[in-house]
Design a protein around this nucleic acid. Sequence first.
DNA 1: GGGCTTAGGTGTACGCCGTACACCGCGAGG
DNA 2: CCTCGCGGTGTACGGCGTACACCTAAGCCC
Lengths: 219, 219
Amino acid sequence: MTNSARTPLSRERVLLGAVALADTAGIDSLSMRKLAQDFDVVPMALYKHVAGKEDLLDGMVDVILAEIEPPAPGATWKTAARTRILSARRALLRHPWASRIIESRPAPTPAVLAYLNAMIGIFRDGGLSAGLTHHLMHTLGSRIYGFSQELFNATATPDPQALAAAATELAAHFPHVAELATTASHDGHSVVGQGCDDQYEFEFALDLILDAFERRQQP
Amino acid sequence: MTNSARTPLSRERVLLGAVALADTAGIDSLSMRKLAQDFDVVPMALYKHVAGKEDLLDGMVDVILAEIEPPAPGATWKTAARTRILSARRALLRHPWASRIIESRPAPTPAVLAYLNAMIGIFRDGGLSAGLTHHLMHTLGSRIYGFSQELFNATATPDPQALAAAATELAAHFPHVAELATTASHDGHSVVGQGCDDQYEFEFALDLILDAFERRQQP
DNA sequence: GGGCTTAGGTGTACGCCGTACACCGCGAGG
DNA sequence: CCTCGCGGTGTACGGCGTACACCTAAGCCC
């Protein structure tokens, strides 16, 4: 009656479990030991399915990449790229830890290369030269994956008292920062902290870049 | 004769020592214990000068920020920003670990806020509206600090044998990536791996963004 | 069916890490 | 002279990734 009929581990089960754990407990709580605990298994058991923690993280990136929808056929390169990147962004927003992990990988996995290859293909097939495509990839940077480096990660202080205090502090010493923080660019009602619509800003920058390259394509 | 006349520690000495250690041994080798060893001191001694490792990393960012030259007065906002950002980039290139640390800080230090405040001031004093400045800051992203997220961090394989093998492997499965990797956009002689001039690409993207906002300033 | 291989889970152990807490020597100020 | 507190010490704890030897049970060939 030991109910020993556990479904056996596999690389895929380990990776999905790791993603789930990171989603619920936060990426900092993701350790081989905790992950093993989730499977009611001894830590070393994971090493039969994953080469080590680095390999685990690589695999998690691949899982996120797999959530990105393939590009819709029959669109201009600009809308195809835009759609794909915004789909990537949606995947990234489902897993807030993912951008940090993507940034930290020292070498690209085959899945990452395949993703980049497809993105480059969109531009080349759209008629952009190899050189211009190269520039475009560099200019997009991490936006290709659907995120951009925030100047400072939202500090999540839901306490309105401390928030107001921080605002006056900010205004006193860093007036320009304060002005921008309280200016919600495209709508009026905003406070410091969540005063800017990240999605809007992301699309604004993305479109600005894509438009600029479209102009250079046919002068 | 115990030569006990050590110059006492201080927050500044600790931070500079940490930067030096990260420069020489790599950021992954930077631990409170190793750092203490560099000072011939027991690990806990450091805690009299820094609150903990997070505070240490914050302080290291401040040290790097202090290396950035102040903006030259009497220039247009565009060249002022350009100069400052390229100076930031030079500082970052002196400390290859720095971008990873900057990215990872959960909250900005006063020094970071001061840097951003000065940068925003350049744009506002140059006549850009608050809204446009806001967009510009988002579009620049981490480029404000002098770096951009590389699609994949150079994997430093100086072995020409393995490198050539990787190149054919790449060409077989990811032809578009291979094409871009072997196309050095602005000069001809290049191989996969270091086939692109990161500095050129950085300035290209930076200028493209600044130019785009200049155009929007006065239509 | 008997023995062999082997994939997959176990147990123990090592060396690292950050840091809490109690302690103590010593120079300065009352 | 006595006290206070700054800065360095020693010990210890809990966590981490993972190397290595081991065991067990299922699958396979003869």
